[in-house]
Design a protein around this nucleic acid. Structure first.
Lengths: 192, 192
DNA sequence: AATTCGCTGCACACTGGTGTGCAACAATGG
DNA sequence: CCATTGTTGCACACCAGTGTGCAGCGAATT
């Protein structure tokens, strides 16, 4: 028999992959992809909802960790944002399925769990607005949502493969945060 | 008995509403909301796929019409974009469900039908890039997709109510097209 | 008055996914 | 060797949605 959490972790990893391709994939599909029988999945997660919740909790933990870490560096808001996107990009891409799952059935639960990340994000944008590096055409709470929403959307789109995705997401989000084009390109230039 | 297309049109209208709230709503839900029986819906649309396809065709027709119209005015690309968003906003908001439906099951069909709109959009952005009013950090085909994607996403989000949504969508999309903040605000200023 | 037409109100078969129960099996560790 | 533990392979009940068939009904048309 395998060690306690070996199979469980593999199911979680594979579930991200499978659901990333098709958010409506059933427990059977996930089980097969994990090299396991459907019944086994139910042995680890009492329901599909439980599986999704666990995945969401993981995502929130990872994102929040990155966010607090880059925040602590004390750099200017726009530079912090670039650093944040660069480091959170793989995570966002891995958990891209949450974008689709956010709607319908799990929407409310996911939205609730995402709360902490939303707050940290809004704080960062607010800081940028206060120091005049970000535009103020929208309140920080909304602007942060829209900007990170774009990053998520690009991570979930076709062009998420290769380096193009990360670069496009960073520059695009900077622009919509009100950072001038020249400054935006300079910022991403040093860490391509 | 009602006139030939009266019920059919009402079903289509209501379907947009219902699916807008919940993209996974069944034929039964749509029927009830339209004040008819499920069987009647199947009398007009042989399958759920047929209904969705009809809705998509409507959306494409309406959007393409607006797009060609504003393009013919011959204004600068950024002004044309503002005019386009202003006039297409209600349409985008009405058909916001397509954003969610684009994924899974109908995704391919919708993507195919959206082709003409994509082309017109890319042409407009290309024109803006050639006359140096739009940034060139991304190829026109991708940039147009991302920019309009944001408009669609905002139309589908919570802040789609009130005038805030349209304004936020316009300014945000302008910024990510590379239009300087001052110019963007000036552009939307004359037509709030 | 007779007919046509759109809607209704059932019935049904079918599909696909969820979640559970239980016996068996194989590996691991005392 | 024996007990524990994770996995398997079935079985089953259940649910929700889709799509179809058909008899009937009421209102408009002729």
């Amino acid at each position: 028999m395998r060690s306690l959490n070996e199979t469980r972790d593999r199911i979680l990893d594979v579930a991200l992959d499978v659901l990333g391709d098709n958010p409506d994939a059933g427990m059977g599909e996930i089980a097969s992809a994990a090299g396991v029988v459907r019944r086994t999945v139910y042995g680890h997660f009492p329901s599909r909802t439980d599986l999704v919740r666990t995945l969401t909790e993981r995502a929130v933990a990872e994102m929040a960790a990155v966010l607090t870490e880059v925040n602590a560096a004390g750099a200017e808001a726009d530079a912090t944002w670039v650093e944040f996107i660069a480091r959170v990009w793989p995570v966002t891409h891995r958990y891209r399925v949450l974008l689709a799952l956010r709607r319908g059935e799990y929407g409310e639960a996911i939205h609730g769990l995402l709360g902490p990340v939303d707050e940290l994000l809004a704080d960062l944008v607010k800081r940028g607005q206060d120091s005049d590096v970000f535009a103020q055409h929208l309140p920080a709470g909304i602007l942060s949502q829209v900007a990170y929403g774009v990053v998520f959307a690009i991570a979930d789109s076709d062009l998420s493969n290769g380096t193009l995705g990360a670069r496009a997401a960073t520059i695009t989000s900077l622009l919509m945060l009100g950072v001038p084009e020249t400054r935006a390109i300079a910022l991403v230039g040093d860490q391509p």
